[in-house]
Amino acid sequence: MSIASDLAVQNQDSMELVFKQVRKKQKIKSFIKGILFLSPSILLFSVFLFYPMLRTIYLSFFLTDASGSTTVFVGWQNYINLFTSPVFLKSMMSTFLFVLYTVPVTVIISLFLAVIANEKLKGVGFFRTIYSSSMGISVAAASVFWLYLFNPSMGFLNMIVEALGFEAIGWLTDPAWALVSISITTIWMNIGFTFLILLGGLQSIDSYLYESADIDGAGYFYKLRRITIPMLSPTLFFVITVTIINAFQTFGQIDILTQGGPANETNLIVYSIYREAFVNYQFGSASAQAVVLFILILLMTAIQFKFGERKVHYQ
């Protein structure tokens, strides 16, 4: 009897061992499977995002030749030069001003459009399509449209200005106006996307909330302030951060409308990087600027992740 039970115990143990091996094998198998599904993405991220970013940081400590190979290690000198260079400081200043000009106006206009386009009215679909249309218009096309509108002699805007009895404005050539003009173009271009997202946010608000407010006799603006805006806050927050990030990355409209001028007034950071790297072939200094851009965007995304979940009102 004791032999039989010994055998049983042994059998039990060997089974345990088999289970363990099988489990381990399965774990390895599922790991490999997971990696296989993810490997295309990971590979491309590594080659075209992570490595270039690290390489950018590396390059920012060097001087380079025209082909981009490093020549002299200069430590922080590129950064020191940047932050003592009036051109770069001006570029930073313009970038922040640009963010300040574009983001609030874009969001407010889009919100207004989303609110009026969210009413259940006949034909509202047509208006929604119109409002979102600028999302389908590329930077290049939009810039060309506005290039004509800003045209000093035959542009539509100056026609209006002159009809109103003012002096013609050098929209793109007057340093006082150039950044404003770029901002107007950008706002117009961004409205399509922000409108679409905000409309989606509005439509996901439960209609019961409005119905119960109606029963309580709440007015239109009361509902807007007490239900719509708070319930929309996650969407608003998302839209604001995305618009800010986009503003930091602005390039095309500047390349077509002003090429950074006049007097570097519209030399926003990405354009500044582009010019430094691909016109002046100063890859080290351009990389240092790219690192600054990276840090700015990193901060914005970090803020979005950190406060995006908590500060806003979820259902």
């Binding site: 950018t56 990405v270 890859f283 351009a286 790219a290 990276f294 990193l298 995304t301």
Partner: peptide, 14 residues
Amino acid sequence: MIPFEASIIPNFHI
């Protein structure tokens, strides 16, 4: 968190 624009120089070289 990494904007493509910030890594565009090495990307061009690649």
